[in-house]
Amino acid sequence: MAHLSEENLVRARRLAEIYPKSRSALIPLCHLAQAQDGYLSEEAMEDIAELCGVSPAEVYGTASFYDMLHTEPVGRYVVAVCTNIACMLNGAYEVLEHAESSLGIGVGQTTDDGLFTIEDAECLAGCDLAPCVQVNHRFFGPLDAAGFDGLVADLRSGALADIVPAHGVLSRVDRSNGLEVDPVGDVAR
């Protein structure tokens, strides 16, 4: 095993241990690898396969089921514009079109400077903020074209560094406890 950093390997092994079966850690481990690299690299998937006791093809097949896991590199900021019903009724497609034209890329594409990737997202559960946008899974809204430009400017200037961590980072807090209870007859690993 080579790809995950020393530190992340420690985290990874702990993750694999807190579940009754290590395969359950597959998705948390994908998030971990994505937090390290910004996306899910092939090398990382091979590490995860070993940690979870499955084949690399199964890691790839599983990861690709989920929208948040990217098996190709993405921008530093993944900007997800929700266009589902509540946002659409409040102008989401206009925001999305503005995002595309102002960043000069289409949905699923990344700007040449590697900063932004745009996604056309399904409902993000931010309908009270409609039209709402997530950047690396942090919420912003309601947004119009001007608001979107302001958001992009803040991201570029680093003004949002405290709120928006690098792509792939979900929690900046680690679990501090291992599992301590040993329930009788727990499912064998």
């Binding site: 499955v54 084949s55 093809a57 199964e58 790839y60 097949g61 690709s64 089921f65």
Partner: peptide, 8 residues
């Protein structure tokens, strides 16, 4: 398990 379904 060298092949699996991918995507959704």
């Amino acid at each position: 398990a060298e092949i699996d379904m991918s995507a959704r």
